[in-house]
């Protein structure tokens, strides 16, 4: 444990994100989310766990309105996000950084362009078209690339990088937005166990440095326990657990994942006690 539990009990400055009674029903009639309510204070790293299909991805995408929520409210700082449209929505989105599962870098652009694309919500279309960003943005981008350890690679094309490096660029792009909130959708799902830990540690430490709250949607329970301050368990679109990682007992996990799946995960974890096995794979196999 990296002392996450201690961090969890620090007093919070203020609430950054507040979800109230958020629901999402897809056009097909599937209920993806039902009555989700929780709030995230500054600097808190929230691990969102649950079996596939529990609505983790939908929940994260509802926050920055890549998916339209059906009802409920999303409050980011003073702004109510659910009623925004057009320009106002884009200005709200730029306050929320997002990290993606398959990195979702624009592969044929350079690393630098990818990082600078985090400023798109701030600069005019003309400036972004000519790649003439304000010097402050460029300085910040260089700073972030140094921070994630890719300072030398800024003019490489994104598809020349390894998976771990790409995800670092993804993190730099999200931070380049100067976000008030970080969303991460399975940031480690396509990485090997060792790189996964490195990426999680990086996200955790930048969140500490910048007092940045994050919601990390993650398959891997052990990773979540290690790097999150707070765990929210989702099952069939509903919150079934919300508490510190230390409160994640066998019973709780069984409730989240269902008995069979969780036993399967545990067995696999025991056989590979040293290296953290990706629970995602184990779950998919079962």
């Amino acid at each position: 444990m990296v002392g996450a539990a201690d961090f969890y009990y620090q007093p919070w400055q203020h609430i950054v994100l507040e979800l109230k009674a958020l629901s999402k029903i897809y056009k097909t009639g599937d209920r993806a989310l039902t009555d989700i309510s929780f709030s995230v204070p500054a600097g808190q790293v929230v691990g969102l766990i649950g079996p596939s299909g529990a609505g983790k991805s939908t929940l994260i995408r509802c926050v920055n309105r890549l998916v339209e929520p059906t009802s409920g409210s999303i409050q980011l700082g003073p702004t109510e996000l659910t009623r925004l449209n057009g320009r106002a929505l884009r200005q709200a989105r730029r306050r929320i950084g997002m990290i993606f599962q398959e990195y979702a870098l624009v592969e044929r652009l350079t690393v630098m362009e990818n990082v600078l694309s985090g400023r798109l919500g701030y600069v005019t279309a003309w400036r972004s078209f000519l790649r003439r960003y304000p010097q402050a943005d460029i300085d910040q981008a260089f700073g972030l690339l140094d921070r994630v350890g890719l300072g030398e690679h800024c003019n490489k094309r994104a598809d020349e990088l390894s998976g771990g490096q790409r995800q670092r660029v993804g993190i730099a792009r999200a931070l380049e937005q100067n976000p008030e909130l970080l969303l991460a959708d399975e940031p480690t799902a396509s990485l090997d166990p060792k790189t996964s830990r490195q990426i999680m540690r990086l996200i955790q430490s930048v969140c500490r440095e910048m007092n940045l709250p994050a919601i990390i949607n993650i398959h891997d329970v052990v990773l979540a326990q290690n790097f999150a301050d707070r765990i929210i368990g989702l099952q069939a679109g509903q919150v079934v657990f919300d508490g510190p990682p230390s409160a994640l007992t066998h019973d709780v996990l069984t409730r989240i994942y269902g008995a069979e799946d969780w036993d399967q995960v545990q067995q696999n974890a025991e056989t590979q006690d040293d290296d953290v096995l990706s629970e995602a794979q184990a779950l998919e196999q079962s």
Partner: peptide
């Protein structure tokens, strides 16, 4: 589409 989604998420027009 994930690249499009990622750029959209930055608040791009």
């Amino acid at each position: 589409e994930s690249q499009v989604e990622a750029i959209r998420a930055t608040g791009a027009s």
